[in-house]
Simulated scan of single mutants.
Amino acid sequence: MRKLLVGLLLVVVSERLQAQELLALIDNKEENKKAFVSNAFKSSRVINGHSIEFLGKGVLDVRILHRFGELNSGASNLFGLDEANMRLGFDYGLSNRLMVGVGRSTAGKELDGFLKFRPVWQSTGPGSFPFSIVLVTGVTIGTSPWSDTSHKYNFSHRMAFYNEVIIGRKFSERFSLQVAPIFIHRNLVALASEENDVYAIGIGGRFKLSKRIAFVADYHYIAKGLDKNIYKDPLSVGFDIETGGHVFQLHFSNATGMNEKAFITNTTGDWGKGEVRFGFNLSRVFTISKK
Rank of each mutant, 00 (worst) to 15 (best):
I182K: 11
L88V: 15
Q122Y: 06
M159N: 02
L81Q: 04
M86C: 02
G257E: 07
L4I: 14
P145G: 14
V198L: 11
L209W: 11
I133G: 01
L226R: 11
S14T: 11
S150M: 06
K42R: 10
E164R: 13
F278Y: 12
D82K: 14
N48E: 07
A75W: 10
G49A: 13
G127I: 09
L4K: 15
E164F: 04
P234T: 10
S123Y: 07
D227V: 03
L23E: 12
R97S: 11
R67I: 03
Y219N: 14
V136P: 02
G142D: 15
Q20H: 10
T143M: 15
N266M: 08
N72F: 13
S105V: 04
K290G: 11
S51R: 03
N281P: 05
L98T: 12
K208I: 01
A24L: 11
N39G: 02
V12Q: 05
T137H: 03
G142Q: 14
T140E: 14
I288Y: 10
H50W: 03
G279K: 05
K109Y: 06
F248D: 03
K290M: 09
V102N: 05
V6Q: 15
L191A: 13
I264R: 07
E53M: 05
Q18D: 07
L250K: 02
L177E: 00
H151W: 04
T265Y: 08
S43L: 06
A35E: 09
F90M: 15
R63D: 01
A40T: 05
K33E: 11
M1W: 04
A255D: 07
S289N: 12
D197K: 09
R97F: 04
L71I: 15
Q18M: 09
I241N: 08
L65A: 04
P126H: 08
W271F: 08
L177T: 03
V189K: 04
F131R: 00
N187A: 05
K170F: 06
P181Y: 05
D197I: 05
F248T: 08
A200I: 06
F68K: 02
K29C: 03
T140N: 15
E30P: 00
G272M: 07
R97T: 12
K228A: 01
N154C: 03
Q178S: 08
N28S: 13
L65T: 02
S156L: 10
R97N: 12
V37G: 02
V120Q: 04
V100S: 03
K228M: 09
D82L: 10
R2V: 10
K116M: 03
F161T: 10
G101N: 06
N72R: 15
D82S: 14
K57C: 07
K211F: 08
A262I: 07
D112K: 00
G225Y: 08
T124R: 10
K42Y: 13
P126L: 09
H151Q: 11
L71N: 09
V11T: 10
R206A: 11
L81H: 03
S150Q: 09
